[in-house]
Simulated assay, not measured.
Amino acid sequence: MTQRILIILGHPASDSFCATLGQHYADAAREAGHDVRLLKLGDLAFDPILRLGYRQEQPLEPDLLEAQEHITWAQRLVLVYPVWWGGVPALLKGFLDRILLPGFAFRYRSGSPFPEKLLAGRTAHLLVTLDTPPWFFRWIYGAPALHQMRRTTLAFCGIRPEKTLTFGPVLHSTPRRRQSWLQQVRALALH
């Protein structure tokens, strides 16, 4: 079944290994007949700081309005990002802070501590790079960048995380190892 897929590159550099992962996913998904869009956060012009929280509306820049349109269009989101200091890069965090707003991603309900999930019906794949061995990141650090994205960001808005692939350590990885990671991404995207 053909899907509408939005790939969000959360690494600021277009020549990063994350960018290569995202492009491989896009190429394989198109090969499988899916409709694919690629959003490179490093190419967007926006203020990544939600300056007043939710106390006052901060107008969205044109690139963020277009990003919201892409998210509304998508059936599956693919987030590609590195783990930096145990979390997502500031650019990705700022992007999420600015666009996943009340009225778009969720809606507060009177008398309920749990909001309405306005992005329900969408799924997500996460492609995450590390310079820490994935087992160490999971069992010693507790995988905070994965839990934050899956549970307290995507699921909060109604997006169901389906699959997470972690790749690491990327630092000093061999071309052969990187090629095997790209094959995993290709296999995931072909579904």
Rank of each mutant, 00 (worst) to 15 (best):
Q68H: 06
L65N: 11
V78C: 06
P89Q: 08
L60H: 06
A67G: 01
V80L: 03
E66Y: 09
G87E: 13
L65Q: 15
P82L: 06
T72C: 10
P62D: 06
P89R: 09
P62F: 03
A90F: 03
Q68K: 14
Q58I: 14
V88K: 06
P89T: 10
H70Y: 14
D63S: 12
G87A: 14
P89H: 09
Y81G: 01
P59V: 14
E61L: 00
W73E: 07
P59G: 13
L64M: 10
H70D: 15
D63F: 03
P62R: 06
P62I: 04
P89V: 10
Y81C: 02
A74T: 07
L64Q: 07
E66H: 15
A67R: 01
Q68A: 09
I71F: 01
V78N: 05
V83G: 08
T72L: 14
T72N: 11
E61M: 00
W73P: 08
H70F: 13
Q68G: 06
Q58W: 07
L64D: 07
W84V: 07
Q75C: 10
P82Y: 02
L91G: 00
V83A: 12
R76V: 10
W73C: 05
Q75W: 06
Q68S: 05
V78E: 04
I71A: 06
E61P: 00
R76A: 10
E61K: 00
P59N: 13
E66P: 01
V88I: 15
V88N: 05
E61V: 00
P89S: 11
L65A: 14
P59Q: 13
W85I: 12
V88D: 04
V80H: 02
V83W: 10
V88C: 10
W85D: 12
L60A: 09
G86Y: 11
T72M: 06
A67K: 01
Q68F: 07
D63H: 11
V88Q: 15
V78A: 02
D63L: 02
W85F: 14
L77A: 02
W85K: 10
P89W: 09
D63V: 01
Q58H: 15
L91Q: 03
G86E: 12
A90I: 03
V80C: 13
L77C: 05
P89C: 11
L64A: 05
L91V: 01
L77F: 05
I71P: 02
L64N: 06
Q58K: 14
P82Q: 04
R76H: 13
L65Y: 06
V88P: 07
P89F: 08
D63I: 01
E69M: 10
E61W: 00
L60N: 08
P82K: 02
W85P: 08
L65T: 14
L77P: 09
L64I: 07
E61I: 00
Q58G: 08
P82E: 03
W84Q: 09
L79G: 07
Y81L: 03
P62N: 08
W84T: 09
A90K: 01
V88R: 02
Q58C: 11
R76L: 09
P82A: 02
I71L: 10
W84K: 07
V83N: 12
Q68L: 08
A67I: 00
L65W: 05
A67N: 01
V88L: 15
E66I: 08
